[in-house]
Design a protein around this nucleic acid. Structure first.
Lengths: 333, 333
DNA sequence: GTCGTCGCAGAAAACGTGTTCCGTACGTTC
DNA sequence: GAACGTACGGAACACGTTTTCTGCGACGAC
């Protein structure tokens, strides 16, 4: 553990190397016209002093802060945290640092944070949230890059990243059909949630004739999953495959089926959605589920933001693929 | 949604108010000697232009950045996220912003982040993590306030906040004793985890003669909880109260008991630890558990840091109380 | 031999704010 | 009326870096 003392400034480096501060700056940044020998001498002096340029001074002169704001409406919950981690990862590679802003779904707080971020001269902003419904764009000035992740912007002129919900639901149904299941059902969350609707429509379309019942809407809880399993078994005792709108619902469905004496996956195969490890792995049996790839999305958001900061913006909405993770709830050991 | 244009600088405000820039600064910051009328005129001009002082310029001159670094070893998981939210909350009130640093248990990354934070002239640092074992202090310079939350520092000269693990375990056992349970057991996590050991020792001490078996150590999973329930019932079929080292274990215990035909809480009462809502509420039945109050701890950490920045440091380790949340796993409906 | 060019590095300005110092105008007191 | 204190506001500087402008010496070309 090396103690870190009072930081050296560039004038110290310059003095040690016997050059002017401006020259030292050029040497360390690879700019200007300098002899290789001078450059090297400055570089060694900087290393010797453990010089790290003060980012306030640098930002003041360059107009950049090497900082990005991360605004979430979500209090950093289930969905925004992986996005945040991925973004931090990608941005860290670009020597950027992330400023945290938790707007808690409050437009006033969001506006306040936006002002703060602008006052801090952030190089860009990443916006994320809990819902998949497109949101009103943030009121950022024209020149400031903004990337929306998970929760897209309503404006097609913005840069957004979304999960391929439909593709994920389709892959879940295909998986059951490939396993030879022929009497399918779908259980999902509230009917007024965008994610529920998109996943349901894709699942229903993919199931076609094999669907034994209209999709069931409820809340996102395990309890609802158990209830839905009861309902399904009562109305359609011959159901042999269930795709669910979330892992919580799927876990509840598994429990409900077991309580009713059905074996999973032998009698009924169950597929979840989200790949939330805490739920999916603890379920009995562990859930086959659709992984959202949120961390990859966050990383991509960071990369897109870096590109935009570098002057290579990429407008439009990009859909990120999901991945089906197969576990025991569809394929027994 | 008001569009935010190119930000006004203090010279613009001064020009509009008809004063010199320095005077405008004094007017807005409440310093210097100015006529109330002048102060008000400048204030109105600032409001009219939507002036927000550039924090880079401000930081450069004041030496402060109104920014704190938040270092976690945890990839912002189960424990560090509530702490982070609480801290963000408290600091936001002080016009501070949080810089995110995820060291991932890697000392090299941590050192790198520390350099970055120092280069950014942070006003202070909060350190948190997943484990409760005291950690080696971060190598911050003498003058920089550091607050450790959840994971304390090994040095008693540092400022640390910890959860009252022992008190929590004790309150769980007392609760069962108050309910008239007389044959208790304790199931917890790995024997080499500080949290397991502290909770176990307090639980064992509080249970005294009523303990029917030595505490059982395993991993933190639901699966282990189910296994532990089987073991307990085989060796001590008359057990009537079980305190657990985590909610996941407790949920597993509940499931294991139910699988074996025992009713919770009628035959056996179960208490969890952590109050992780995803687990505790979804459990059958919902878990009575020990809430850690992590968000309050984060808030306290933020407050302590603000105090330290203001020149009122408070060294030493502060223990934060837990709270027993009573649900159906100990008190039936 | 002089002029232009090139390579290199120093001096100075710029970024935006806070703060210190100083001058001025005004009122008070002897 | 002069000396003094006080309220006010302007000018200059500090913070640390980047960048532009300028200068100097050497070298080649005419």
């Amino acid at each position: 553990m090396t103690e870190i003392g009072v930081p050296a400034r560039i004038v110290d480096v310059a003095a040690l190397a016997g050059v002017a501060p401006g020259t030292a700056s050029k040497a360390l940044n690879g700019t200007g016209q300098l002899r290789a020998e001078t450059r090297e001498r400055v570089r060694r002096a900087a290393e010797q002093l453990g010089f790290t340029p003060d980012s306030l001074g640098r930002g003041l002169s360059s107009g950049r802060s090497y900082t990005v704001g991360l605004i979430t409406t979500d209090s950093f919950g289930r969905f925004s945290i992986p996005v945040m981690l991925g973004a931090e990862n990608a941005l860290g590679a670009g020597e950027m640092v992330v400023l945290l802003c938790d707007s808690r779904d409050d437009p006033v707080r969001e506006q306040h944070y936006l002002r703060t971020l602008l006052a801090r001269r952030v190089d860009g902003i990443i916006v994320t949230g809990r819902r998949t419904e497109p949101r009103t764009p943030v009121a950022a000035p024209e020149h400031l890059p903004v990337v929306y992740a998970f929760t897209p912007s309503q404006s097609p002129a913005d840069t957004s990243l979304v999960v391929d919900q439909a593709g994920g639901a389709q892959s879940a149904v295909r998986h059951l059909l490939d396993l030879g299941r022929t009497r399918l059902a779908h259980v999902t969350g509230p009917a007024d949630h965008h994610a529920s609707v998109v996943r349901r429509e894709a699942a229903v379309a993919a199931a076609g004739d094999t669907l034994v019942a209209p999709a069931l809407h409820g809340d996102w809880s395990e309890r609802w999953g158990r209830t839905a399993a009861e309902i399904l078994l009562r109305r359609h005792p011959d159901v042999d495959g269930i795709t669910c709108g979330s892992d919580q619902i799927a876990r509840g469905v598994c429990d409900g089926l077991r309580d009713a004496g059905r074996r999973v996956p032998d009698d009924v195969a169950v597929v979840g959605f989200d790949d939330w490890d805490v739920i999916a792995l603890a379920s009995r049996p562990p859930l086959t589920t659709v992984a959202l790839g949120l961390e990859a999305m966050g990383r991509r958001a960071g990369e897109l933001l870096l590109d935009a900061v570098a002057g290579r913006p990429s407008v439009g909405t990009t859909t990120m693929p999901t991945r089906l993770v197969v576990r025991d709830s569809t394929v027994g050991r």
